[in-house]
Design a protein around this nucleic acid. Structure first.
Lengths: 230, 230
DNA sequence: CGAACGCTTCGGCCGCGGCCGAAATGTCTC
DNA sequence: GAGACATTTCGGCCGCGGCCGAAGCGTTCG
């Protein structure tokens, strides 16, 4: 069964800690330069160059030349989905171990984009709120929006009727919270609606987002989320 | 960002060709002994033992002792989902390369179980038939059953109304055909209905299935699938 | 109770691959 | 055109980890 070989080739690309860090840094869909990625992964540029070449060769990353910079990004949402599913395994792997606290990571842990939907504490809180009210139900590999949920989300301004070929509503395990949040078409619509309402703004050059005063009020009134909790 | 390390640990487990072969051999949910897996992966039992210990330690496999045998299986459907998503990347990786033909693999390539739904040529043909008739639509990370599809599948005997927390209908890239077939709740229901109708039977100790004479007729009449094509 | 069997542990060999320093290539700026 | 900067290539070091032979442990069966 030669198929395992090809599987292993892809997995081995992710299986190096340095490359995994690079991929995770790109997990929100941004495009970064080789030097930026080298800095994030704490390696020299020449080492990063080698890793990036491998990732591009393996079709995990795509690259766009812009002047003397080369911008790397995930090659497709499939890569993002793959990373998610691997992280889902990593999240349940063993008892929670040594989790180093880094001041710079706090904003990211609080609220951030995960490709096109919200993650971090905020993403999990949103999911919890919807699950608690019976608007959404999660299983291991899928989720459903209940009739009451459809009503609620439509009232919130989401267009759920539009036929989409994406997974409609699925759980995505959060790496910082180790709990599921809402991905798929519903997750993306939710995020862009929050953005549209001015509840959140994206922090420049980061995947992190800040919650505005308006967002604070809206999250409390609409979803019952109390930001003072964190 | 220490998170990449954990991601890499999981991915590295899959990133070894031998371990990947072991995992793929278990992809249909069967439980196999260490010796059987050693034979399938073409390694000595002691080498297999080492790999299996790593996979169990990494929570990818679970093990059940039974007399002097130890049966290994995938620890959860999450593992299956992860392997699928990695295979999806492997399938689009580069131009089709050297694909060795093995006589023993032919049955498996023709029709087999992929955890709980049908894959191989048959799985892809079913998906194609449903897509061609507008009963199902596929995107990159999700699929939908159209109204006509709901009607059609219900008439076929599937209970689609039952609320399920699983992903309803999603594409799963086939490793032998390199094309998507139907996974998720719909895929599982479709497979078990075919089994129930006596259209397919499982080949003992294999993930492969054979199509019965009744199945041949049914697939032609109901889905327009001509088995003479292959 | 002894032999066969399934599986694991130990010890040692060996090769792959990650890492960096130095240097080359290409691009932009002044 | 010189100098700064982004990125890659090359060469060499070094350690991790896969592999197997031999041996050990527990279970089963005659």
């Amino acid at each position: 069964m030669a198929t395992g070989t090809q599987t292993a080739e892809i997995a081995a690309l992710v299986g190096d800690p340095t490359r995994a860090n690079i991929l995770m840094a790109l997990a929100d869909g941004r495009a970064l330069t080789a030097t930026e990625l080298a800095f994030l992964a704490r390696i020299t540029p020449q080492t990063a160059s080698g890793h990036l070449a491998k990732l591009v060769d393996g079709r995990l990353l795509s690259v766009a030349q812009q002047g003397r910079h080369r911008y790397f990004r995930l090659a497709s949402p499939l890569v993002s989905a793959m990373l998610e599913s691997i992280n889902a395994m990593a999240a349940i792997e063993g008892p929670p171990r040594h989790r180093p606290r880094s001041a710079t990571d706090d904003a990211v842990r609080h609220a951030r984009y995960c490709y096109d939907h919200l993650a971090g504490w905020l993403g999990v809180a949103l999911a919890d709120a919807l699950v608690a009210r019976g608007h959404v139900e999660f299983g291991e590999d899928g989720g459903v929006v209940t009739p009451s949920g459809t009503e609620f989300l439509t009232a919130f301004g989401l267009d759920l009727a539009r036929r989409t070929r994406r997974a409609f509503c699925r759980p995505c395990i959060d790496w910082s919270e180790r709990r599921p949040h809402i991905a798929g078409a519903v997750g993306a619509a939710l995020a862009s609606r929050c953005f549209e309402l001015g509840w959140i703004t994206r922090i420049r050059d980061t995947r992190a987002v800040t919650i505005t005063a308006k967002g604070r009020a809206g999250l409390r009134d609409t979803f019952g989320i109390d930001l003072a909790q964190r």
